[in-house]
């Protein structure tokens, strides 16, 4: 045990702690929290006041006072009245949900086989699943352009096998977006599901088999419930980033592919409407917080019931 510190020593210890905490705290307050206040304010101002985007027209914080007097909910009214934005939100949620289900369908068998693989293979298998995640996102999407585009690799293979003469026409559709999302986010699904499956005590399954339970029944009544937290975590890790995705719908999607991240990008870079894109960002955050809050509620309820 340490000797009880004397008063001066305790003061110095305290000062040290404040110093350690202050740096990351202030950094995040300045570059994470403060920007959101600005986005929220910007979303309530008129577009003419914030334009043009490049000139620093409102010199620093002094102009914010004048800004505040002109705040209104015009941009949110526009978001609610123009069906483009509502459609974009709904279609983002729909595509992200489909991508999540597909990722589960592809990722669960992979995670299951990994958990069952011989012990000495498992570190290598883990690296194999994590490695694509470290590889550039842009490059992985680019690889699919080469495969899916008209007269690309997939068309060449399909025609070579004599399956079809016409191009498959997957590129620039929602299907291409789904493939891109499942491919990009698959490691996020596999890792938590694998971690949950790997922890399951195999003697439970043996006991069930001894008592006459067929394997499929043990799977549904033992494996799946015990893996549920991993499955839910994996689904959230795919669903949440997929909703706000920009690169995948932009590069693999077609002109009809409507996603909210792409709408925000267009409003900002093409239409240069900063206040409106800020309003889109605020609503997007609200949409994202919903599944997170539901998940935390469910987690608390689960802990409470035990």
């Amino acid at each position: 045990m340490s000797a009880p510190p004397v008063a001066g020593e305790r003061g110095r210890l305290r000062a040290g702690r404040v110093l350690v905490l202050a740096l990351p705290y202030l950094w995040l307050a300045a570059f994470f929290l403060a920007p959101f206040a600005i986005v929220a304010r910007m979303s309530l101002s008129d577009s003419a006041r914030a334009l043009p985007p490049y000139a620093p027209h409102w010199e620093g914080l002094s102009r914010l006072g004048a800004f505040l007097s002109a705040l209104d909910f015009e941009n949110y009214a526009l978001l609610a009245s123009d069906t483009l934005y509502l459609d974009a939100y709904l279609s983002s949620v729909r595509l992200a949900a489909f991508a999540t289900l597909l990722a589960l369908a592809v990722g669960f068998p992979l995670a299951y086989a990994m958990a069952r693989a011989p012990r000495q293979w498992q570190p290598a298998l883990l690296v194999a699943v994590i490695l694509p995640f470290w590889t550039s996102f842009l490059i992985r999407i680019y690889a699919w352009i080469g495969i899916l585009r008209p007269q690309g690799f997939l068309d060449a293979v399909a025609q070579g096998l004599g399956l079809t003469d016409a191009p498959l026409g997957i590129m620039n559709t929602d299907a291409a977006v789904l493939i891109g999302m499942v491919y990009s986010y698959l490691p996020f699904m596999v890792l938590p599901v694998y971690a949950a499956l790997e922890r399951i005590d195999r003697s439970l399954l043996e006991a069930a088999a001894d008592l006459g339970s067929p394997p499929w029944k043990s799977f549904w009544t033992i494996t799946v419930p015990l893996a549920a937290p991993g499955i839910v975590a994996g689904c959230l890790l795919v669903f949440i980033p997929a909703i706000g995705e920009f690169v995948i719908p932009d590069l693999l999607g077609g002109p009809d592919t409507l996603m909210i991240g792409k709408v925000l990008w267009t409003e900002f870079f093409s239409n240069r409407d900063w206040p409106l894109s800020s309003a889109v960002a605020v609503v997007l955050l609200a949409v994202l917080l919903l599944p997170v809050i539901v998940f935390q509620r469910a987690l608390k309820a689960r802990e409470g019931s035990r």
């Binding site: 920007p35 959101f36 986005v39 409102w58 914010l64 909703i243 706000g244 920009f246 900063w274 960002a281």
Partner: peptide, 16 residues
């Protein structure tokens, strides 16, 4: 956080 939101908010800060 979606990257588009982080990017937009930081840009607005840098402009401010």
């Amino acid at each position: 956080m979606p990257e588009v939101v982080t990017g937009l908010s930081l840009l607005l800060l840098f402009v401010a």
